[in-house]
């Protein structure tokens, strides 16, 4: 059946309106960004800023070594993200399980969350990075990589645990009851019903924490890991230019974009599936 005359007219109007809106958006974007560019580039200090921060040749020279240093950042945050998720889920579950047998572990989980959320991440990095090896205990790791992994996992695990706990508590109690009523055990209900819903619900804040974590791998330069920021620092100190920092910044930004798109994708997919759109 072909659409009615009225419907065709509505479609024509909508098309015209969206064209006009697109044009307005384009013009205003160009005006504002162009205006900003003019203000910045006309400022008296711009030539110097341009030379030190945005020099194309410096950037090209710094790129390869910063790129290879950034591989370390990637390795770090991939490992840490997995560990943080595991620690976060375990701590969150320990805190919500109503079992009295777990009381001492629960207390431990509360203290852990309080302490590590309250301590500046940089401090945790320094304490673990320099403190743990100084103990000279058998079996404690001495590799800087793993010390760094431990420090950031401790710090971010505490945040993520709280996010996941909030997610678990936000699931409607009838979901618990329905699971238990089907004869599923507490653990099965948690694993198959509550946790999947909780994680989905908190995915955006969770990925937000991961974005923050990816940037904070730069803190590990303080214990001597030569990652992207440290590498930029080295070049910058050598040639008295700041462009390498900008290059490093671009790497960090680039690394967060996949995460942001992943969040969008997951959100849209679960919306689409669950609402049948």
């Amino acid at each position: 059946m072909s659409p009615s005359e009225r419907q065709l007219e509505r479609q024509r109007f909508r098309r015209r309106r969206s064209l006009i809106r697109g044009a307005v958006a384009a013009v205003s974007t160009v005006l504002i960004l162009g205006g900003l560019a003019v203000i910045v580039t006309q400022s008296p200090g711009w030539p110097r800023v341009h030379r030190t921060f945005f020099d194309w040749n410096d950037a090209k020279d710094a790129f390869p070594s910063i790129a290879s240093a950034f591989v370390l950042n990637i390795r770090l945050f991939l490992v840490i993200e997995v560990l943080v998720l595991i620690v976060g889920i375990i701590v969150a579950i320990v805190r919500v399980v109503p079992s009295p047998a777990l009381a001492p572990i629960k207390l431990l989980a509360i203290v852990y969350a309080d302490v590590f959320r309250g301590t500046p991440t940089l401090l945790v990095v320094l304490l673990v990075g320099f403190g743990v090896p100084a103990l000279e205990l058998q079996g404690t790791p001495t590799s800087l990589f793993w010390l760094g992994v431990i420090a950031l996992t401790l710090s971010y695990g505490a945040y993520v645990a709280e996010v996941i706990r909030a997610g678990i508590l936000s699931i409607h109690p009838t979901q618990w009851a329905s699971g238990r009523a089907l004869g599923l055990t507490y653990g099965q209900t948690m694993r198959h019903i509550v946790l999947p819903q909780a994680i989905r619900r908190v995915a955006p804040p969770l990925l937000n924490d991961f974005v923050s974590l990816q940037k904070d791998t730069a803190l590990l330069s303080t214990i001597g890991l030569v990652e992207a920021l440290r590498q930029a620092q080295v070049i910058s100190g050598h040639y008295f230019i700041f462009t390498p920092y900008v290059v490093a910044a671009l790497f960090f930004i680039a690394a967060t974009i996949p995460l942001a798109r992943l969040t969008d994708f997951l959100t849209v997919r679960s919306l689409r599936r669950e609402n049948g759109i």
């Binding site: 009838t174 009851a177 009523a181 004869g183 198959h192 019903i193 989905r200 669950e274």
Partner: peptide
């Protein structure tokens, strides 16, 4: 002993089929 409540019975993250299959398989 089965029970059905007023609302929020189904698990929203599982398809209708998986909702029904879950109990017999897992429990």
């Amino acid at each position: 002993v089965g029970i059905v409540f007023q609302a929020y019975n189904l698990f929203p993250h599982l398809s209708v089929l998986d909702n029904i299959v879950l109990g017999p398989v897992k429990a």
